[in-house]
């Protein structure tokens, strides 16, 4: 049974995750993706979540969920102990994004990262024409109350991967409910609202 709350990007992520593998979902919310992966792909693993109400909801779904603050890193997890680390629309809301990227690459054999693309043309034009920080459905906050602290574009993320010797195995884009439309494939940094990357450390990519 597919959970009604399963997001479009979750379906893509689920395609990328191997059956019977170990996953770690950082900022797992109510555990919807993990429950879906356990049911459809027999994965094991854990979700990390800071909000107690989400933790309770995840427990109710039978997900192994650990209440913790991602800012503290992933100290309890050994190097390369996880097949796939998933971090969905969370990197941009961290104070210490770089540290967590390092931690993800330490703990995971590979990772799937999704994030809102700040280079999306509507965001650009909002800033350009109105001269104010963009507010949209996907970025519904004012500058003074947004949980999104580190806003970045697809190009920015690609640069981060180069800087950190991270291999990009695959990348997909979503705009509205559409995955990988022709426009987004042509110029993702302009036309993609959301990006989903599959990455791995260079050392293990040979």
């Amino acid at each position: 049974m597919t959970d009604a709350k399963l997001r479009q990007e979750h379906k893509l992520i689920a395609e990328w995750v191997d059956s019977n593998s170990v996953v770690l979902d950082l900022g797992c919310d109510e555990g919807i993706l993990l429950a879906h992966l356990a049911e459809t792909k027999q994965v094991t693993g854990y979700g990390i979540e800071i909000d107690i109400n989400n933790v309770v909801a995840a427990m109710g779904r039978g997900v192994s969920v650990i209440q913790a603050d991602l800012e503290a890193g992933l100290a309890g997890f050994d190097d390369k102990s996880v097949d796939t680390v998933i971090i969905g629309q969370t990197l941009q809301s961290l104070r210490n994004t770089e540290k967590l990227v390092d931690e993800i690459m330490r703990v995971g054999k590979r990772a799937i990262v999704s994030f809102p693309n700040f280079g999306y043309w509507r965001v650009r034009s909002y800033l350009y024409f109105r001269g104010r920080m963009p507010v949209s459905k996907r970025l519904p906050y004012e500058w003074y109350n947004t949980p999104n602290l580190h806003l970045f574009t697809i190009k920015d993320f690609e640069q981060l991967c180069r800087d950190k010797d991270i291999t990009i195995c695959d990348q997909r884009y979503q705009t509205g409910q559409h995955m990988n439309s022709m426009l987004t494939r042509m110029s993702p940094n302009v036309f993609a609202e959301l990006a989903v990357f599959c990455i791995q450390p260079k050392a293990s990519s040979s």
Partner: peptide, 14 residues
């Protein structure tokens, strides 16, 4: 919790 994770056991923590 960390020991259980190391042992690969299913664990939830609040």
């Amino acid at each position: 919790v960390a020991a259980l994770v190391k042992a690969g056991k299913a664990v939830s923590y609040a």
